[in-house]
């Protein structure tokens, strides 16, 4: 029988070691979601553009990132982006927290490839007639996209976008590989300090489960509320 002991997990320990990690993981997820959807929408528009070279660029971007394991992308970005770059965008913060910052950049670009495919499907789900209607009242391409097509595409795709974000939240634990201090790393650190490396994995998994599962439930509730009446 395993001899499990969780008595070291006091609130003080959690507060000083795990909560900062959780906050970073949530931050990473949120920033990446917003950045990824913005960049992804842009890539989706490129893919659906009438200009072949734009389509090509977007396709290469999406296909490349979707064909490489996330863990490798994280390592490559971390190793290849020079320290100077981090310093430039974040001042001294960039040097001290290089792994954390590298993770934000990596995930934004990586997730954008996935969000792009979702947004592409979303844009294509908006009937062609809506585009005609936008043009017919005198909108430019940009206005038609911004005011007519994208709001509908976004609503149609919101559940899928959020589900992808939940996957993203779980994937952020991979920043373990470059030593960023995230939620998982918080647990592992506590495990090291108190010499309980096995025990900490259980509450860590439970926390990921509870957060992800509640979010999934929330998405399901939301789905029935935001559907456009047709």
């Amino acid at each position: 029988m395993l001899n499990l002991d969780f008595s070291f997990l006091t609130w003080a320990v959690i507060k000083s070691n795990i909560v900062p990690g959780l906050l970073y993981s949530l931050q990473l997820t949120l920033v990446t979601m917003v950045g990824g959807i913005l960049l992804g929408t842009f890539v989706a528009l490129m893919r659906l553009s009438s200009k072949p070279w734009l389509q090509r660029v977007a396709a290469v971007y999406v296909d490349t990132l979707r064909s490489i394991p996330l863990l490798m992308v994280i390592l490559w970005f971390y190793l290849l982006i020079p320290t100077g770059f981090y310093a430039a965008i974040a001042g001294s913060y960039g040097v001290d927290h290089r792994p954390e910052l590298a993770a934000v950049i990596t995930f934004t670009f990586f997730e954008a490839a996935y969000y792009a495919e979702i947004m592409r499907a979303g844009i294509q789900s908006v009937p062609r007639g809506q585009v005609y209607a936008g043009y017919a009242v005198g909108m430019t391409y940009a206005q038609c996209m911004r005011l007519v097509v994208l709001p509908q595409a976004f609503r149609n795709m919101l559940p899928v976008l959020l589900t992808q974000t939940i996957v993203l939240f779980q994937d952020t634990s991979l920043v373990y590989a470059i030593g960023a201090y995230d939620f998982l790393k918080g647990f592992l650190t506590v495990g090291q300090i108190y010499n309980r490396p096995d025990e900490v994995l259980l509450p860590a998994a439970a926390c990921y489960f509870v957060i992800s599962f509640s979010l999934s439930m929330l998405v399901r509730r939301l789905q029935s509320r935001i559907q456009i009446i047709r």
Binding site: G129, A133, Y135, G138, Q152, R230
Partner: peptide, 20 residues
């Protein structure tokens, strides 16, 4: 063209109101 179209009203078979 957008400016020209803004002066030409158009009504479609499937209405094409903006559902959102």
């Amino acid at each position: 063209l957008p400016k020209l179209r803004s002066r030409v009203g158009m009504v479609f078979q499937h209405f094409e109101l903006f559902p959102h």
